[in-house]
Design a protein around this nucleic acid. Structure first.
Lengths: 160, 160
DNA sequence: GGGACTCATGTAATGTTATAACAGCCGCGG
DNA sequence: CCGCGGCTGTTATAACATTACATGAGTCCC
C-alpha cells in the first residue's frame, strides 16, 4: 500500500497541495475545476495509487456524485488533459500527478508486487527518445514511458 | 498504410523472414509454433500494422482456425511472451516484432495520423531509464516505451 | 497397451474498460 | 429573452480481455 514516491510522507499535504495546485492552475487558465473533477482528483490523491475508472466511479456513486461511466471518464479526461493526473496505460488506470507544478515528462515505475506507482523525472529519458526518434524523422508529441519491476520495499522482501 | 519502418521494402521478405526466424527460435528452444500461432504471426506480418485481437480473430474465423477470443489471445500471448510480437499498450493492439533476432528493447513510434507503428532501437532509452530508476532503488524488469507523434510521411502532409 | 501427465485447443459465459449519442441545465453576452 | 458553450445525467453499446471447463494429441513410464 505504499505510495507514489516509495517513501513515507505526510499524506494530508499531498491532498491539500495537489488540489490547491490544480485550483490555482485552473484559475490561471480559465478552466473549471467543478465538484466532480475536484472530487475525482481528491480521490486519486487520497488513495495514492493507480485506480481504474470504475473504482473511482464507485466512490462517486457512494457520494451521490454520479453513477454512470461517462461521469468518471469525463472527469479523468479533464484531469489528464490538463496534467493533474496521468493514465498508466499498462494498468488501464489513473494516478494523480505527483508534480503538478507545470509541464513535465513523467516516467512511471510500477511495482509488480505491491502495485504502487512512482512518478519520476523523465528528462534524460525524453532526451534519449527524442534522439532515437529524430533518427527516423519522427516528431514526438507525447509519450508513454512505464517501467515494471520491483520497488525498493518489495525488493527487500524478495532478497534471496 | 505505411509500415513499420516508415520506409518501403519488399514485403514478402518480411513475412517469410519473420516466420522463419520464429520457426528457428522455436526449434532451438523447444517451443511449439502451432498452426494457429504461426498463422497469427503471418497475419501480423502481412498486415504490417498494429492490430486488435478481434481484428486477428476475424481473420482466423474466416479461415476456420478458431472463433472465440481466447484462441486469438492465447496465440498472441505466446508470440508476445517469446518476443515474436509486441503489444502496443497505448492502442491495445499487437504488432509483429521487426527484429526477431533475439533480445531487444524496443521503442515504438506511433503515428497519430496514419496509425503506423515503427519499432526502433531503444538501447539508449533503456540506459536512461535504468539510470533514472536506480536513483530511487527501483529494479526494472520490463518496460513500455511508446511515443506518439507524426511519422516522416505524415509530417510532409502537415507542413504549414 | 494403459495410466498419468503436459500442453494445446474448442467453446460458453462473463468480466472489464471505454465511448456514442442525446437530453437537460446553467451562466453569460447580445 | 434568446442563443451559445461548457458541463452533467442517462441509456445503450462497443471494444478489450479473462475464467472455467471439456476435449484431444503427444510423451513418458511401467
Amino acid at each position: 500500500m505504499d505510495p507514489l514516491g516509495f517513501s513515507p510522507h505526510n499524506h494530508d499535504h499531498c491532498i491539500s497541495d495537489g488540489v490547491a495546485a490544480a485550483d490555482a492552475q485552473c484559475r490561471a487558465k480559465g478552466l473549471q475545476l467543478t465538484p466532480v473533477r475536484r472530487r475525482v482528483l481528491e480521490i486519486l490523491l487520497q488513495e495514492h495509487r493507480a485506480m481504474g475508472a470504475y473504482d473511482i466511479l464507485d466512490h462517486l456513486r457512494n457520494e451521490g456524485l454520479g453513477s454512470q461511466p461517462p461521469v468518471a471518464y469525463r472527469a479523468l479526461d479533464f484531469l489528464v488533459k490538463h496534467g493533474f493526473a496521468h493514465k498508466i496505460e499498462r494498468l488501464n488506470a489513473f494516478v494523480a500527478c505527483a508534480h503538478p507544478e507545470g509541464d513535465h515528462a513523467p516516467v512511471f515505475l510500477i511495482c509488480r508486487d505491491c502495485n504502487s506507482v512512482a512518478e519520476s523525472d523523465g528528462r534524460t529519458v525524453r532526451k534519449a527518445m527524442a534522439d532515437t526518434a529524430s533518427q527516423s524523422g519522427f516528431a514526438i508529441d507525447r509519450s508513454v514511458v512505464e517501467a515494471l519491476g520491483l520497488c525498493p520495499n518489495c525488493r527487500e522482501g524478495h532478497a534471496e
